[in-house]
């Protein structure tokens, strides 16, 4: 047994233990803390699976942003009155049996791989040179399966619309109910002044490097969102009202440019979402830059929640 397999087994044991504790914990707060830790461990697992792009995404979005949302929710839910009664014992046993069956089915499926494992990796690499990209995952996201990526951005916008639509009618167009902790000269203010320049550089780097190495629009966008949320929470910039035109333009600019380049492909290249030969890389980088901005703003706004206050004049 090599040292790496010992490491893997330890990691799996930790993942399972913490995962189970997030389900079993009595306190919601403890469960959420467990979940954040779990998210970080999970991104190590992704590195062990040689999927660094996924590891970055998981750490940024799966652990970071989701954890932040949940912590905020736990804090607000403290005031909730009364709790539901726990499911009865027979119901829990039935659910346990059902879950065990599903898990066992999956385990059987995983333990019985096909004899010759099929893969698209060679095909991806053969054709990657045409696009000028060096990162095969970016190639799949922006070249071969660009349609999925484009539609997934629309999903993000719909989710934002869904969150906004929960606002009461009288505050529509108002300011999201992000909790602001504005205390002048606090340490948080210091952090919010110091970190964003670094964070923006990191975001640009991630977006740029995504074309040839792990990284890309999602990861860069998440870092941008985190920086924006930080300065808003510290009260350095005000939370914008959702009726601002610039805000809405920023949210859609990525998908719009993506769509426009895709449509241009019908004329200039052979097909929708095809890139004219020789121009693939600059076009993809342009799309990625715009998407990074849009994802950053959209994620930030998703975390900020529905409008809760009317804009003060």
């Amino acid at each position: 047994m090599t040292i790496l397999s010992v490491f893997d087994i330890g990691l799996v044991v930790l993942l399972l233990g913490i995962g189970a504790s997030t389900i079993a914990a009595r306190e919601a707060f403890a469960a959420v803390i467990g979940f954040v830790v779990y998210g970080l461990l999970l991104s190590i697992a992704w590195v062990r699976l040689s999927a660094v792009d996924v590891a970055l995404t998981e750490a940024a979005i799966g652990g970071g942003m989701t954890g932040m949302l949940m912590l905020g929710a736990v804090a607000r839910l403290r005031v909730a009155k009364g709790s539901d009664t726990r499911a009865s014992l027979p119901a829990r046993v039935a659910a346990g049996v059902l879950s065990a069956i599903v898990a066992a089915g999956l385990a059987i499926a995983i333990l019985s791989p096909p004899e010759a494992i099929p893969t698209l990796a060679p095909m991806v690499m053969e054709n990657l040179a045409q696009s000028g990209l060096g990162n095969p995952v970016a190639g799949v996201l922006f070249v071969y399966r660009a349609l999925d990526t484009l539609l997934e951005k629309v999903v993000l916008i719909l989710a934002l619309l869904g969150v906004w639509s929960l606002a009461p009618d009288n505050v529509w167009g108002g300011i999201p109910g992000l909790r602001v902790y504005a205390r002048p000269d606090s340490t948080l203010t210091f952090l919010a002044q110091l970190l964003p320049p670094v964070g923006i550089v990191v975001a640009i780097y991630m977006c740029w490097v995504g074309a040839k190495e792990p990284g890309g629009a999602f990861q860069g966008g998440t870092v941008l969102a985190a920086m924006w949320l930080l300065v808003m929470i510290a009260g350095l910039t005000s939370v914008p009202s959702i009726s601002q035109t610039w805000l809405r333009v920023l949210v859609v600019v990525g998908p719009v440019i993506f769509l426009a380049i895709g449509l241009a492909g019908m004329v200039l290249a052979n097909a929708f979402l095809a890139y004219p030969s020789g121009y693939a890389k600059p076009l993809i980088v342009a799309v990625e830059v715009a998407l990074t901005l849009s994802i950053g703003v959209a994620l930030g706004l998703l975390a900020a929640g529905p409008p809760e206050r009317v804009q003060q004049q």
Partner: peptide, 16 residues
């Protein structure tokens, strides 16, 4: 350095 920065500040905030 980044971990130093965030660690120091988070420790401050928690202590506060």
């Amino acid at each position: 350095l980044l971990v130093q920065l965030s660690g120091a500040i988070v420790a401050q905030l928690i202590a506060g």
